[in-house]
């Protein structure tokens, strides 16, 4: 893992501090702060309605924050809107193009809006759109539309690209291709801000993740850091040859959860718990059938982090 956040002299390319935005008396974004370094893939993860999209819309200049500070490459998305649009490429969660505009026309049009755009041909090829250049937007499948929007977000050669629900509507193959593309984009020096509720995507792509829930950042860490900070970062399961009673189990160190089902015991805890279980079994001369020790996934970490509120 790279040491983002310790880049030193360089300014963060995206800065959000104490951002607040409410609609109709409801605080949709309630004091969100984070910063993203140049070249980072930064994930914003959270359940539906958590305030993820509103947060990035403030960065894109589509919404005016009630309070707080938002900067993209040191620029204010409202006051310096034109300058921000030249450095920030956006893929919006819900938007369409003119139904009768063809893929080629869309790429040419959007390329022409930027001062020094990328050549759209290789981009279209990379996104598998070459065979669809003469197809009208209304004739594209959901996945093809999504890929076109990714291309349009990148065609202006942005420094930062915001991708909101990147792979929604893509089949597993296209999803993996898209992930590779995002890694290439980052390798080219572009900072990526990824809004998602898809764990596998966040775990695979992101250097750091801000978990947003109820309009607040509930955790901000690397994917493995998020997993490690869980009380039950490791799960131990086995079927003991002789029953174990609750007292013996609850004496285990760093134990976070106990579950019994058909004679099988599942324990949540840490490495320390694993060692203690192994020595307990040895001491009692109990054979553990089908002993499994697994790391918790980001999925579980996420559920932990977002369920805590309820």
């Amino acid at each position: 893992m790279t040491t983002h956040g310790m880049a030193g002299a360089s300014e963060p390319v995206v800065e959000v501090s104490e951002l607040r935005k409410s609609y109709g008396g409801r605080n949709v974004v309630d004091g969100v702060s984070f910063s993203v370094d140049e070249g980072e893939i930064f994930g914003i993860l959270g359940p539906n309605g958590a305030g993820k999209t509103t947060t990035v819309e403030c960065l894109e200049g589509l919404r005016v924050p009630d309070s707080g500070r938002v900067r993209v490459a040191g620029l204010d998305p409202r006051a310096d809107h034109d300058a921000v649009t030249r450095v920030l490429g956006a893929q919006l969660q819900e938007s369409e193009l003119q139904p009768k505009l063809t893929v080629r026309e869309a790429l040419e049009l959007y390329a022409s809006l930027y001062p020094s755009p990328l050549d759209w041909r290789p981009l279209a090829e990379r996104l598998g759109l070459t065979g669809k250049l003469t197809t009208r937007f209304s004739g594209l499948s959901g996945g093809q539309k999504q890929r076109l929007f990714i291309a349009l977000a990148l065609v202006g050669a942005p420094r930062v690209v915001v991708l909101d629900e990147l792979t929604t509507g893509l089949d597993p193959r296209a999803r993996r291709d898209t992930w590779e593309l995002i890694e290439d984009v980052r390798a080219g020096g572009v900072t990526v801000l990824l809004v998602t509720h898809f764990m596998e995507e966040a775990q695979r792509l992101c250097d750091r993740i801000a978990v947003i829930d109820g309009g607040r950042v509930t955790a901000l860490d690397t994917p493995s850091g998020l997993v490690a900070r869980m009380a039950r970062s490791t799960v131990i399961s086995f079927t003991p040859s002789t029953p174990l009673d609750d007292e013996e189990l609850s004496a285990l160190p760093a134990l976070a959860s106990v579950e019994r089902r058909d004679g099988r015991i599942t324990l949540g805890g840490t490495d320390e718990t694993v060692n203690a279980v192994v020595s307990l079994l040895a001491r009692r001369r109990i054979t553990a059938h089908q002993l499994r020790v697994t790391d918790a996934t980001l999925d579980e970490a996420f559920l932990d982090l977002t369920a805590a509120r309820d």
């Binding site: 589509l62 030249r86 956006a90 938007s95 809006l113 930027y114």
Partner: peptide
Amino acid sequence: GYRERGILRRMSTTPM
């Protein structure tokens, strides 16, 4: 339709 479909919104994230 341009507004309803988010076409105007999409364009406002570009320099145009």
